[in-house]
Design a protein around this nucleic acid. Structure first.
Length: 449
DNA sequence: CTTATTACCTGTCTTTGT
DNA sequence: ATTCACAAAGACAGGTAA
């Protein structure tokens, strides 16, 4: 496997496009009062400027650098060209961000390679990248797993190649600080240090149960395996999106609820648009607030069915914002949607579609049984309509409840909901097809029609 | 002083299935 | 057909990390 990392990517693109910046310190990131550094060129790094540092601190460390806002469209374009070169080498490429990706060479039949073979492949790739990107350089790590490739790519930056021979993985890792392992950040490092663990060798000697007690079961068992270089994680291209969100830090803290409501509405619309563009919809709406002291709070609410409707997202976000304590004002507001489904809301019948289907004779509507509290009125396979959840069909009934699955023949199964048989919002019972035996009649007898 | 976006984990409650 | 107990699953909020 290869891990490819473009060197100081955003800054390098700016230097490529503006020759006067070459050889000079360049800092790309937020340029406002609350901006942070995305990328510093190697010239700027000499002054101690680092990613994630506040722009204010970077300015004091390196006042004569060029400070530029990011041009994501340009970076995306170069990224696409570089990723295409990788895919020419092997179809199995997993981008981690605009400037980073894993490549599984075995997926294109490149197996049984010597260290020299891999080095040659990496150098050829770097040449190809330089050619299609207008001179960008990359650092490449290679090894028998994602973990080793990722760590190796960091060892000889910029413009380096490091190949770790098969069989030497554990000894390669042993002398390194635990912080080199992806997933071990400041919090985990501190907990490990308290347990006397500083290097991977220390970690290799620790008891797994002890490790799990210190840092939790999921993290503990995966870290335990990574420490001995046991890493079977596959390279996965086309990973599925699991959430979509928008957030913004304000120049000054905001407290006015009317202002924040308008901002929330705009954010909800942007999220909805992005969901629609990606043909996604989701059930959970989350509002995020960051207080002046940087504490962060989230409030979320889950709908019965997925939506991509900006108005629905905005309405829920408004309510969540109302329930949020703004304290002395907030520095950040965010709106997101998660619990994504790959099928969209209009799989559920709208009122218009229902009426059209009805007049076309493909469905007939009958009155609810005269004793609506009698669950014998619902049979498996019957179609029903619920005021809030749309149209679905009866999955089962009993114990005073009727279970409805919302789906159509063409879609994956929708959510199953259980209602009390006397739920007034459970309105229409529909017999699909021609053999409905009750007298066909249009009727609704509940609220919410 | 401390971005934007996404993913994933955990503890605690609540809901739902059997 | 109804009730009860228990387990599994889901919802929520916060934390960690890249």
């Amino acid at each position: 496997m290869l891990h490819v990392d473009l060197d100081a990517f955003f800054a390098a693109v700016e230097q490529r496009d503006k020759p006067s910046l070459r050889g000079k310190p360049v800092v790309v990131g937020g340029v406002g009062v609350r901006g942070v550094v995305s990328t510093a060129s190697y010239e700027a790094r000499k002054y101690g400027v680092r990613s994630a540092m506040s722009t204010a601190e970077a300015r004091s460390r390196c006042p004569h650098a060029a400070y530029l806002g990011p041009r994501f469209e340009v970076y995306r374009q170069s990224s696409r060209a570089v990723m295409a070169e990788m895919r020419a080498l092997s179809p199995l490429v997993e981008p981690l961000s605009l400037d980073e990706a894993f490549i599984d060479l075995a997926a294109s039949g490149l197996t049984g390679l010597t260290v020299d073979d891999v080095e040659a492949i990496a150098n050829d790739l770097k040449t190809a990248i330089r050619k299609v990107s207008g001179g960008l350089t990359a650092s490449v790590g290679a090894g028998t797993s994602k973990l080793i490739a990722k760590i190796a790519s960091d060892l000889d930056k910029p413009d380096g190649v490091v190949v770790v021979p098969a069989g030497t993985e554990a000894e390669f890792l042993a002398p390194m600080q635990v912080t080199v392992i992806p997933g071990v950040g400041p919090a985990t490092t501190q907990r490990l240090n308290l347990a006397g663990v500083r290097t991977v060798a220390d970690l290799q000697q620790l008891d797994e149960d002890e490790l799990i007690r210190q840092i939790g079961s999921a993290h503990g068992s995966s870290l335990y395996r990574l420490a001995v270089a046991a890493d079977e994680r596959p390279v996965v291209s086309d990973r599925e999106t699991k959430s979509v969100s928008v957030e913004d830090t304000f120049e000054t803290d905001l407290i006015d609820r009317a202002v924040l409501t308008l901002i929330s509405d705009r954010m909800a619309h942007r999220v909805g648009e992005r969901l629609r563009k990606a043909q996604l919809s989701g059930r959970t709406v989350t509002v995020k607030t960051r207080m002046h002291d940087f504490t962060t709070h989230t409030r979320s609410s889950t709908l019965a069915g997925p939506t991509d409707d900006p108005r629905v997202i905005a309405r829920v976000a408004r309510r969540l914002l109302e329930e949020s304590d703004l304290g002395g004002g907030i520095r950040l507001l965010g709106v997101g949607v998660s619990s994504l489904a790959d099928w969209i809301q209009d799989d559920l019948f709208t009122e218009e579609e229902f009426a059209a289907a009805e007049s076309a004779g493909s469905v007939e509507v009958v009155e609810l049984p005269s004793r609506p509290r009698d669950q014998r009125g619902y049979h498996p396979g019957q179609d029903v309509e619920h005021a809030e959840h749309g149209r679905g069909w009866v999955w089962g009934s009993g114990r005073g409840r009727v279970t409805v699955r919302f789906e159509t023949a063409e879609t994956p199964p929708g959510p199953v909901r259980t209602f009390s048989v006397d739920d007034p919002a459970l309105t229409k019972v529909v017999h699909a097809g021609a053999d409905a035996d009750g007298e066909p009649q249009t009727d609704h007898n509940g609220p919410g029609e």
